[in-house]
């Protein structure tokens, strides 16, 4: 068990290192004009060169990478170029992260608390009307492009329930739609997989044996099937952290929530390279940490885990 945790920790750290390096290098492959945004054509050759030198971009890529890591270890994320010129990115993020974190966590909690029981109920009453409606609903939510779906939510829910179209941190009712939008997709994903895993497990031999030894319906569902179905879900959880992230990028911008997701879109549109880099790294890091936590959770739930290698899961 300890060995497994150590291995996974090491794996996560290595992943983080590789991903950060890759993203850094990828961004250096961008065509030159990408560094200047819309003003590129107006600038003279010399100004461009001096601007690059000022930002340290004239040095070899490897030197830049080493610099970058040095600063990162010191907690220095660099400075914004265009969004707020020469303002430390760390300071910008400081104000933005709490919003994203709050909304993200609430959304995750909502999706878990709704999605898992929903999937379990659908499996329990498989083939009944409720299950059919649920399945159809999930199909539609899964099939519709996220962007279109969230637009619909914003457009219609706001008018049906008379909710504000924009976010206001002091007005709790304005939190409802963004959280609903972000969780909707995760709820459906959870419900769908939970239902599938439950149904898979219901048909397993051990459930037949449990029934044969006289265990009754509800007890089987909860003590035997639910737990077994939940184990692969646990591994799935971090993946949904990822989808929550993506959802929040879009939703935050849509509702003008002053969080990091909306910020990413802003800085992409304004071509602020350091900001894009930092935010992409931030999200990648959240992704890796999420996966790592999911693995730990699995190890806690499944006694087999310390014996099975990860690559051969399932």
């Amino acid at each position: 068990m300890l060995e497994y945790i150590a291995k996974r920790t090491l794996g996560a750290v290595v992943s983080l290192f590789i991903v950060i390096t890759l993203i850094f290098l990828l961004l250096r492959m961008m065509p030159m004009e990408g560094y200047f945004g819309a003003e590129y054509d107006k600038l003279s050759e010399e100004t461009r060169a001096s601007m690059l030198a000022e930002k340290g971009l004239d040095k070899p890529v490897l030197t830049q990478l080493v610099e970058f890591y040095k600063n990162l270890l010191k907690g220095d994320l660099g400075k914004s170029w265009i969004f707020r010129p020469n303002y430390p990115i760390a300071k910008i993020l400081e104000k933005k992260i709490p919003y994203s974190l709050k909304i993200g966590l609430i959304s995750m909690a909502v999706s878990l608390l709704v999605g898992i029981p929903l999937g379990a109920m659908m499996a329990r009453f498989k083939g009944k009307l409720g299950d059919k409606i649920g399945t159809a609903f999930i199909a539609i939510v899964e099939a519709l492009p996220t962007a279109v779906l969230m637009l619909f939510v914003q457009l219609y829910f706001s008018s049906w329930f008379n909710l504000s179209l924009l976010f206001d941190k002091d007005n709790p009712s304005t939190w409802i739609l963004p959280i609903l939008s972000i969780s909707l997709l995760s709820i459906c994903t959870y419900a769908m997989w939970m239902r599938r895993y439950m149904i898979d497990n219901i048909n397993m031999d051990y459930v037949k044996l449990a029934r044969a030894k006289g265990v009754r319906g509800g007890r089987i569902m909860f003590l035997h099937v639910f737990k077994n179905a939940f184990v692969p879900m646990a591994q799935f959880l971090p993946g949904s952290v990822l989808s929550t992230i993506i959802g929040s990028i879009y939703v935050e911008h849509l509702y003008s929530i002053p969080g990091t997701g909306g910020l990413l879109i802003d800085v992409i549109q304004r071509q602020d390279n350091t900001m894009v880099q930092t935010l992409v790294l931030l999200y990648a890091a959240i992704g890796i940490i999420g996966m790592f936590l999911g693995d730990l959770l699995m190890a806690l739930l499944d006694p087999r885990i310390s014996f099975v290698k990860k690559g051969d899961d399932r």
Partner: peptide, 8 residues
């Protein structure tokens, strides 16, 4: 191999 609950 499959008739016991793996988690108990």
């Amino acid at each position: 191999m499959t008739s016991l609950n793996p988690l108990k």
